[in-house]
Structures are given as structure tokens and as C-alpha cells.
């Protein structure tokens, strides 16, 4: 079937679009992991919450309003940013430098809290956001046709990657995050308020998850507990890409997406196993991930 050029290109696009959605979540996760050294288990739950906030805005408050989804995505980003700021300033900041399991337990508790809050507010039904009118249907790409909204999601992933890269490598804020990552004490001694750098990274990561959640919800479904599957895939992407590496996460997400898309076609029974096999294979040869740095110990 893969000899059919229409089907082959469709499958490649499926893989890329699956990967790009995961990348938007993974980008925030890997940023937080790289700078704060916190493994944020709740990142999938942030993504889910972003989806629900987006649903509330797009399908309830602004139902039928043109451009509702874009407002919903911004709203979801803002809600998550505020929430993340509160979480970081009141709770998470006390856990920096402590042993990892404190952070794990804390972010794990967030997962449970967010899931229960979602159940209480939105119930357990499966919800879904409609495609925006401007991106309905498929686009003719010559060799194949493909849903416009999924092409848009691919573009979002690429734009997020480039913007984040510019932010981290070309701005003062980016230099501070890189410095904080290398030596927190030294940076603090130089008079930089490191805790604000940390807070801004956590907020930015959560905001990305929120926006990504709302945009992705328009192409998939929302249900309590959906974060469990997402967070596992996101962790895989971050691990194979290299902890803290932005382009590593990008590459990892593309690989995961393409393996999912082609695996489903070629070996449907083993699609999930294939992902783990890929992870094992990469970690055997590069334990620090594809684009991660081997840490001096």
C-alpha cells in the first residue's frame, strides 16, 4: 500500500502532524527540565487543562463566533500562565535543590488535583472542539490532499521551535536561562534574581502546554485522564531527544510521530512496542539522547 504515492505522502504528513503536537508539549517540558531541573509530571495535565479551557471558551462562551478558537488558545495560554505562576511562587520554588522525589511527588499531586478538578468542572464525557471554519476540509497538495487543520498544527510546531530557539539563543532572557542552567549560585552572586528566571521558564512552559492543548483539542478529543498517555509519549520524546535539548525534542517528536504513523500501517499490533524499541535502541547507543550532551560527572 505504501507504494501508492498519495498514501505514502499522507502517512508522512500524519507522522509529522502527530509529532508536532507532541513537540509543543515536549518543548515546554524540556525547557523546564533543562533550566529548573524539575521533572514536571503535571505537564500533560497542563496540556489537558489547556484543552478544557479552550473548549469552554470556543464551544460554550464564544460558540459560533468567528475566530473563537484563536481567542480560546490565547485564553488557555493565559490561564495556564497564571496558574503556573501561582504554583511556582507558592509551592514549587520551595522544592528546588531538594531531592528529586519531592518534586516528583509534588508534580504528581498536581496531576491528581488537575484531573479531579477537570472531572468536577467538566464531567467525564468526551468533549471535542470543532475545526475553525477557515481551516475546515482538506487542501490539495498536488501529490495528495490533506486536512488543512493538521497542516496548520505542523506549522505551529515549526513556528514554536524557531521562536523558542531565537528566544533562548538570541535574547538576554535566553542567556540568563542558559547561565542559570550551568551555575545557579554564580549567576545569583552576579546579582541576577535567579528565582524570577526560574518562574518565567515555568510559566512559559505551562503557557505553551496550554496553547498547545487548546489547539490540539480542535483535532482530537478531551477526557479526564487523557494526560497519562500524552505525558508518557512526551517523556519518550524528551528522553530520546536529550534532556533539556530543544532541537532534540523536535527531532524526537518527529521520529515518534513517524514511527506511530508508519507503525500503525505496517505492524498495527506492535505500534506501541515499536516506540519503546526505538527508545531502547537510541538509549543503547546514545544514553544522553540524540542531541543531548554527555554530562561530565
Amino acid at each position: 500500500m505504501l507504494t501508492n504515492p498519495m498514501f505514502l505522502s499522507m502517512t508522512i504528513l500524519n507522522g509529522i502532524s502527530i509529532g508536532m503536537v507532541i513537540f509543543v508539549i515536549a518543548a515546554g517540558l524540556t525547557l523546564i527540565l533543562g533550566v529548573l531541573r524539575v521533572l514536571n509530571f503535571a505537564h500533560g495535565a497542563f496540556f489537558m487543562l489547556g484543552g478544557y479551557v479552550g473548549w469552554q471558551v470556543a464551544e460554550v462562551w464564544l460558540d459560533g463566533v468567528p475566530g473563537a478558537l484563536w481567542i480560546a488558545a490565547i485564553a488557555a495560554g493565559l490561564v495556564l500562565a497564571v496558574l503556573a505562576l501561582i504554583i511556582e511562587r507558592t509551592m514549587l520554588k520551595h522544592l528546588y535543590g531538594r531531592e528529586e522525589y519531592y518534586q516528583l511527588l509534588f508534580t504528581f499531586a498536581l496531576v491528581l488535583l488537575i484531573n479531579d478538578a477537570v472531572k468536577v468542572i467538566w464531567g467525564t464525557d468526551i468533549l471535542t472542539i470543532a475545526h475553525p471554519d477557515s481551516l475546515r476540509g482538506a487542501m490539495d497538495l498536488g501529490i495528495t490532499f490533506y486536512p488543512k487543520y493538521r497542516l496548520f498544527l505542523c506549522a505551529v510546531g515549526i513556528v514554536v521551535a524557531v521562536l523558542l530557539w531565537l528566544l533562548v539563543s538570541k535574547t538576554r532572557w535566553g542567556r540568563l536561562t542558559r547561565a542559570a542552567r550551568m551555575d545557579r549560585e554564580m549567576l545569583s552572586a552576579l546579582g541576577v534574581r535567579v528565582s524570577l528566571v526560574y518562574a518565567s521558564v515555568f510559566v512559559l512552559g505551562a503557557m505553551l502546554a496550554g496553547i498547545g492543548g487548546a489547539l490540539a483539542a480542535a483535532d482530537r478529543s478531551l477526557y479526564p485522564g487523557m494526560d497519562a498517555d500524552i505525558i508518557v509519549r512526551t517523556f519518550i520524546v524528551v528522553i530520546i531527544g536529550g534532556l533539556g535539548s530543544l532541537w532534540g525534542a523536535f527531532l524526537g517528536a518527529l521520529i515518534l510521530g513517524l514511527i506511530t504513523a508508519f507503525g500503525t500501517v505496517l505492524v498495527p499490533e506492535f505500534e506501541l512496542v515499536l516506540i519503546y524499541l526505538m527508545m531502547i535502541a537510541i538509549l543503547m547507543f546514545r544514553p544522553w539522547g540524540l542531541l543531548g550532551r554527555e554530562e561530565a560527572r
Binding site: 500500500m1 498514501f7 499522507m10 483535532d219 482530537r220 478529543s221 498495527p268
Partner: peptide
Amino acid sequence: QVWPAANTDDYSPFISQLLA
């Protein structure tokens, strides 16, 4: 015949197969 998992969130690989 295509068999998505019961909790599939993304049907596009299966949809493409049927379209082909």
C-alpha cells in the same frame, strides 16, 4: 479491515488506509 485501539485519539493513520 483496520483496527484502531479502543482509546485511539488520532484516527488519521487508519483513515488514510481506508482512503487508499
